[in-house]
Amino acid sequence: MLTPFYTRRSFLVTSGLAAAALAQGGLAGAARAATLAPTQSMRGGSNNYRPGAPLVDRLGSGFWVTGTVRDAASGAPLEGVRIQIWAATTLGGEREPRNHGSVLTAADGSFRLETEQIVPNFGQPHAHLAYDDGAFRTVFLRPVMPSARDTSVNADFVLARA
């Protein structure tokens, strides 16, 4: 007579063990979520950077640059962090001073800046964002818009203490 590959009892035992292992893994994952991998600077992110872009209410209208800033150590949102933003828009290229501005993050770590429409520059429609204020390690981002017709672009920062 053939012995079944597994019995109902062994199935219950193994599945119970598997569930326990999964649950533990899940808990460990949740504990690890508190420390996040810091965001790495992107290639070309710092191109045409002009340090100390002035804090502005807006740089134009019709296009939104959005994102969030969190602390890598705790995963908590960071408030009052300055993010510098620049891009080629209908006002001109990336070196045009009117295309450079800074915003501060809100209590939930979010930031947003309204600008003129971003236009393709050097072959890709993209924005530049920088955190460069010393308390955390400097990060330069260069998010690319999937389409030149997009009216927003998002970039999230996870910052590591300097």
Binding site: R43, G44, N48, E94
Partner: peptide
């Protein structure tokens, strides 16, 4: 002349754009 850093990145094969 338009953007020295972007052009140098391209010439040095360090640009983020795949077509460079």
């Amino acid at each position: 002349l338009t953007s020295p850093p972007d052009t140098l990145d391209a010439l040095l094969l360090a640009a983020p754009t795949p077509f460079s």
